[in-house]
């Protein structure tokens, strides 16, 4: 990572926790964990409450749908790290990796429900163009998505527009696929707290 403090500036207890993670998972500690554990009162703590609420709070969207939204937002921002990480979580949640890769390779032809497709299109536009018009919202509502579902999707969009920027700015190191798999299992079992 580009800041040495994020790699090795943690306190003793956190370093001990990292050692435990390495032993029990058999994988290196993911850089996103190092980030949220560094001076957690500033960013990691308050942000985890946002992310956990968006990704695991009550919603008409499934966990798989929300992880897929996260992966698509990451892909739109060209954040390879987050795209791979959340494609792995979405694939695990759906138990369907083909569905996830179909959406990430071509949203328009992927075999998914139209309300989800319309919502993913909206998130892509918010992320790419920074803003959307009421007509964009009307198109999603007309596809059968409720205003509450749109808000929930925008919450996911917010969280991953923050996290993806940090992953790229701080230069998260790309681990092997096994590390993302282990991370995905953890996130499906425990969430983002």
């Amino acid at each position: 990572m580009r800041l040495a403090i994020l790699d090795s500036g943690h306190g003793f207890a956190t370093k001990a926790l990292f050692a435990l993670i390495r032993v029990f998972s058999g994988q290196p500690v993911l850089d996103v964990i190092k980030l949220v554990k560094y001076r957690a009162d500033f960013y990691g703590g308050p942000m985890s409450r946002v992310t956990h609420g968006a990704m695991r709070g009550p919603s008409a969207w499934s966990v798989g749908d929300r992880e897929l939204m996260a992966a698509l937002v990451a892909k739109t921002n060209e954040c390879t790290w987050c795209t791979q990480a959340h494609a792995a979580v979405a694939s695990g949640a759906y138990r369907d990796a083909a569905r996830v890769s179909a959406v990430l390779s071509d949203l328009e032809t992927a075999p998914i429900e139209e309300p989800l497709r319309a919502t993913l299109r909206l998130l892509r536009k918010v992320t790419r163009e920074q803003t959307v018009a009421p007509e964009d919202m009307r198109a999603v509502l007309a596809a059968g998505v409720s205003p509450e579902q749109i808000e929930d999707a925008l919450a996911v969009c917010f969280a991953f527009n923050v996290i993806g920027r940090l992953a790229d700015a701080f230069g998260f190191v790309q681990p092997g696929p096994e590390a993302f798999e282990a991370g995905a299992k953890y996130l499906l079992a425990r969430g983002y707290r």
């Binding site: 992320t127 009421p134 009307r138 808000e151 925008l154 917010f158 920027r165």
Partner: peptide, 20 residues
Amino acid sequence: AVGQASRQYDAALVALDIAN
């Protein structure tokens, strides 16, 4: 990062409220 994501989010919520 939080500032940019907030501007996107707030603009989208305003558009949603108008549509709604």
